[in-house]
Nucleic acid binder design. Structure first.
Length: 808
RNA sequence: GCCGGAGUGGCGGAAUUGGUAGACGCGCACGACUCAAAAUCGUGUGCCGCAAGGCGUUGAGGGUUCGAUUCCCUCCUCCGGCACCA
């Protein structure tokens, strides 16, 4: 019988659609299983093989879960706001909405050809008003619950393009498009208080079935640190400078204090609000340094490397422990946003502090002796002692190791009221403002005094205006819209203005998994009873590049929504899996590199089933690899051989016991492998079984049917076709997954390997129940083994059913 | 620099509560079919050997063990993430 995948695939895709077998009734489902893949960006490049590499195995796993008796929901949608569409609009003049909608259409068409179980009735597109009204609603909720606030923050700005750049567009400190050096500009922007959730985000990781690597990355991103804020008096003033440190044990060796250039104390100095009563007035120097640091580009910062710059403020802070007069400096190696923005310098025991001290000739004191006993003065950078050691020159801490000393000094400082034990986090609040057109408008308006007010919910969706050109002007594109301003004045009054910024696209993707469950509900974000049953997502599959952005934001939003009372779960994704990355000639596929491999012609040529299986057979799903189609022939042959076996070679009434045993071993192996997402070995197990059937010269209808069931998640179209031709009822995807019989797997004899001194010297076949003595005797009798048993056998080891090891 | 992960034939890869390394597939070689080629099928494919058999072997070196791809130590290379975070 002639085999034509493209005909078969079109036929079954149509049948599935007509029977609506992938549309899930969320309310009626008995065993909800929510299988989710990270939704794609509807790029003009269309789907590439990387998408298939991600989606096809995810679909196979979902089909498997369905056959195991679950009500599986696998939605698909589009993360449609974002820069590429806007940049394309700037170039072509085509409105992003137009290009996005057409890209979505193309991609849906491509996706349909894959033959996945997507429930298209639940599709979302984040750039449509029906969707982004909920993005805006989320903003209002955050605002209402005081988790949204506005403050000045620097953005990347390209002076030549007159535009704000995302961090990714300003890599290496130059503009992606024109190569101009990017500068920092302060703008007033909206933030969401993810820092309020830092501890919960950290604690929640414990119970998640996520890759360890990803959990560690989130842990580091959140970056919890226990330390102490020490308040130092500034000599001759009433001021105190508070420094955060995790190493108060070394404080007897503190010889200076450094402030971030924008630290409030530095501001007071440059504004001459405080002036040292002795010595030189340094306010001009401090101001100059502050201005320089603002102007400094990312590029200059990187070129500077670790070389330290700074200015002395003219003030001294007093180290209470030693009475040491610590000069107070400003330097941009101290970050304003971490800890207190002020650092106490202990040059003997911190490399950065040492570099600074050396640069500005500040004394170095050793207070920790290294474990090798080295107590010499610290003069070179290699001698800086950050590791384990014993305290010296530290009065009551002397002799203690650094950990005990840390505890002791912390409680000492707290008792004396000079320090406060604190926990800080490295994670920053989420900057959600974007000075961009193609995003959801922030639903805020300003009264004539510039005070922000939320746009009332009844006005959502707060529509993105369309009367905007896309030429960069240095301002948010929405400022050009007459309609936007008129709309605001009409609704709120004369002199009122809208917020012109749009929201980060990560906001759109922070809750889309809930919106799939809403089925277009215009009244609620999601029906609470459905949310309760379907969340959290059973398996979430997507790239590891989202470990610290999307996957933290989504967790934060879910937690916040729970606190607001809209959802019942704390965590959105119970199980997370990262697919590997498919590269081409070693590089990530991208249009700019010109190495994008399109799946279309491959599907045309080999069929979706073969192409999917090839991608899965390439290697472990989580590892990815470099693209090459050299091996796809093997899968083509496999597919044809399956078809031949299950159509023209169904010629046996019953199969031999060895065939039955092999079949049941294969059921076991394929079941376990698909459960563990090890598709490559599941396919090779089916290949082995097929090889055996071919050796037998044919197969019974019973076994052929079981084979078809095992194939169903991996090659959905072919298996439907074979199921039908074998006389199976209904769709194969609606059948029960086969169960193996352990009794049938057992064999009556074992092949035992014989090792002498660890080297393989022979093999014997023994009965399954043979006692140890009998096996050993038989092993020693093996002629080739005898040759090596010249001297006495010192030790005999028998691993039941596996091997005999003899030591002479 | 710090935190992860990986290194196995010509290639993709398989095997780890320590137990016959190289499953499965690609490629290659030879053979069958063919006027021929493609496709298909068969045989072989770490090295030596006609064979029996022997030897070698999982990035490098060392250790534990009857036995190590698997566990421990030192080092090298590649990939991913973070990076002046106090």
């Amino acid at each position: 019988m002639e085999f034509d995948p493209s005909k078969i695939e079109a036929k079954w895709q149509q049948k599935w659609e007509e029977a609506k077998i992938f549309e899930i009734d969320l309310k009626k489902a008995k065993n909800p299983y929510y299988s989710l893949v990270m939704f794609p960006y509807p790029s003009g490049d269309k789907l590439h093989v990387g998408h298939w590499y991600n989606f096809a195995p995810a679909d196979s796993a979902a089909r498997f879960m369905r056959m195991k008796g679950n009500d599986v929901m696998t939605p698909m949608g589009f993360d449609a706001f974002g820069l590429p569409a806007e940049n394309y609009a700037i170039k072509s003049g085509i409105h992003p909405d137009t290009s996005t909608r057409s890209n979505v259409q193309t991609m849906v068409k491509q996706l349909r050809r894959m033959g996945c179980m997507y429930d298209w009735s639940k599709m979302v597109n984040t750039s449509t008003p029906e969707y982004y009204r909920w993005t805006q609603w989320l903003f209002l909720q955050m605002y209402e619950h005081k988790l949204a606030y506005k403050k000045e923050a620097p953005v990347n700005f390209c002076p030549s393009c007159q535009t704000v750049l995302a961090n990714e567009q300003a890599q290496d400190g130059t503009c992606e498009r024109c190569g101009t050096t990017v500068i920092q500009k302060n703008l007033s922007q909206w933030f969401w208080k993810i820092t309020d959730y830092a501890e919960r985000l950290l604690q929640g990781l414990g119970d998640l079935d996520w890759p360890e690597k990803t959990k560690i990355m989130q842990q580091n991103w959140i970056g919890r640190k226990h330390g102490i804020n020490i308040a130092y008096d500034v000599e001759g003033t009433k001021e105190k400078i508070v420094c955060f440190t995790t190493r108060p044990d070394t404080n007897f060796g503190a010889t200076f204090v450094v402030l971030a250039p924008e630290h409030p104390f530095a501001m007071k100095v440059m504004d001459r609000q405080i002036v040292p009563n002795t010595g030189e007035d340094r306010s001009k120097h401090v101001r100059w340094y502050y201005e320089q640091s603002l102007k400094k580009t990312e590029l200059e910062r990187q070129e500077e490397g670790r070389k330290k710059t700074g200015e002395f403020t003219g003030f001294y802070a007093i180290n209470q422990l030693t009475g040491y007069r610590m000069p107070v400096w400003v330097s941009d190696f101290v970050l304003g946003g971490f800890g207190t923005g002020a650092v106490v310098g202990v040059p003997g025991h911190d490399v950065r502090d040492f570099e600074f001290a050396q640069q500005f000739k500040i004394p170095v004191i050793r207070v920790v002796v290294a474990s090798d006993g080295d107590a010499s003065p610290i003069e070179r950078i290699e001698q800086v002692q950050e590791e384990e050691g014993t305290m010296i020159n530290s009065q009551f801490l002397d002799g203690l190791n650094i950990h005990e000393a840390t505890k002791r000094i912390m409680s000492y400082m707290e008792d004396k009221g000079i320090g406060q034990i604190v926990t800080t986090y490295r994670i920053r609040d989420w900057l959600v403002s974007r000075q961009r057109y193609w995003g959801a408008p922030i639903p805020i308006v300003y009264d004539p005094d510039g005070k922000p007010h939320p746009v009332p919910e009844k006005h959502l969706p707060w529509l993105l205006p369309t009367d905007v050109a896309f030429k960069p002007t240095g301002k948010s594109p929405l400022t050009e819209s007459k309609e936007f301003i008129e709309r605001t004045e009409k609704l709120f009054g004369k002199g009122w203005t809208p917020e012109f910024d749009t929201m980060d696209t990560f906001v759109c993707s922070s809750y889309y998994y809930l919106r799939y469950l809403a089925e277009g509900d215009e009244k609620h974000l999601v029906d609470p009873t459905i949310e309760k049953r379907w969340m959290p997502v059973s398996t979430y599959i997507g790239g590891p590049e989202h470990a610290c952005m999307h996957l933290i934001y989504a967790r934060f939003v879910m937690m916040a929504l729970k606190d607001f009372g809209f959802v019942s779960h704390e965590e959105p994704f119970k199980k997370l899996v990262h697919q590997g990355l498919i590269t081409n000639k070693g590089a990530k596929m991208s249009k700019s590199k010109g190495n994008v491999v399109s799946p279309d012609s491959l599907v045309e040529w080999h069929g979706s089933d073969a192409f999917r299986m090839y991608l899965m057979f390439m290697g472990p799903f989580t590892e990815g690899g470099d693209w090459s189609d050299t091996g796809i022939k093997g899968i083509d042959r496999f597919v044809k051989r399956i078809h031949a076996m299950c159509t023209s070679n169904v010629n046996k009434k019953v199969d031999q016991p060895e065939v039955i045993a092999a079949l049941h071993r294969t059921i076991k192996k394929v079941t376990e492998d698909i459960e563990g997402l090890r598709f490559n070995t599941a396919i090779s197990a089916l290949m082995e079984l097929l090889n055996l059937l071919e050796q037998e010269g044919g197969v019974s209808s019973e076994t052929a049917k079981t084979f078809t069931l095992l194939l169903a998640p991996l090659a959905p179209h072919l298996s439907e076709e074979l199921w039908e031709s074998l006389g199976g009822k209904d769709f194969v995807i609606r059948q029960k997954w086969p169960v193996f019989d352990p009794a049938l797997i057992k064999t009556s004899t074992f092949v035992i390997a014989i090792q002498v001194n660890g080297k393989l010297r022979g093999e014997i076949e023994v009965d399954a129940g043979a006692p140890k003595e009998e096996v050993l005797a038989k092993a020693k009798a093996h002629p080739n083994v005898q040759k090596f048993l010249a001297s006495r056998v010192k030790k005999e080891i028998y691993v039941a059913g596996k091997l005999v090891s003899l030591v002479v």
